[in-house]
């Protein structure tokens, strides 16, 4: 898909998450590990909620996890999503612990909480790659 054709919302990487999105472009799922207490956290934030350290290191996650919750969107919330519905938004509990919101690349007929999923990287523009998931 060319950059011009992609009309859906895109992230605007900032100082806290530039490394994450750069990792996605390399098809690596990175999560922040606190340099102070080694706690993993999601999403990318400027301070550890546990020990208050400001420094963190992105570490590579396996990309596997389970469905923590999901919702199937039937109504397009903005014109850009017209023609895309229905689609399924998921909260994935990664093997490493953090829970991240994403979407399924395709939803099987019978979906349930606890199903195993793995990351799929979609290069949606020349600059942005989105980590989505598929049921395995």
């Amino acid at each position: 898909m060319s950059a011009d054709a992609y009309a859906l919302p895109l992230p605007r990487p900032g100082p806290d998450d530039a490394a994450f999105w750069a990792g996605c472009r390399r098809h690596e799922l990175l999560i922040q590990r606190c340099d102070g207490c080694t706690a993993l956290r999601w999403w990318n934030a400027p301070m550890c909620g546990r020990c208050n350290a400001l420094e963190a290191t992105p570490v590579r996650a396996s990309g596997r996890g389970t469905i923590f919750s999901y919702t199937t969107t039937h109504r397009a919330f903005s014109p850009a999503w017209q023609g895309k519905v229905p689609y399924t938004v998921v909260v994935v509990e990664l093997e490493e612990g953090p829970r991240m919101t994403s979407m399924l690349v395709e939803a099987p007929a019978a979906l349930r909480i606890g199903q195993h999923v793995e990351v799929v990287f979609e290069d949606v523009t020349g600059e942005v790659t989105l980590p989505k998931f598929r049921v395995i």
Binding site: S69, T71, F77, V89, L130
Partner: peptide, 24 residues
């Protein structure tokens, strides 16, 4: 967080958030 972490995946605000809560 929305622009970075939920809108690219089509989770648009309260109905989506409460859809996830309801499923849980």
């Amino acid at each position: 967080y929305r622009r970075e972490w939920t809108e690219p995946y089509g989770l648009m605000g309260p109905p989506g958030g409460f859809g996830l809560l309801t499923r849980s």
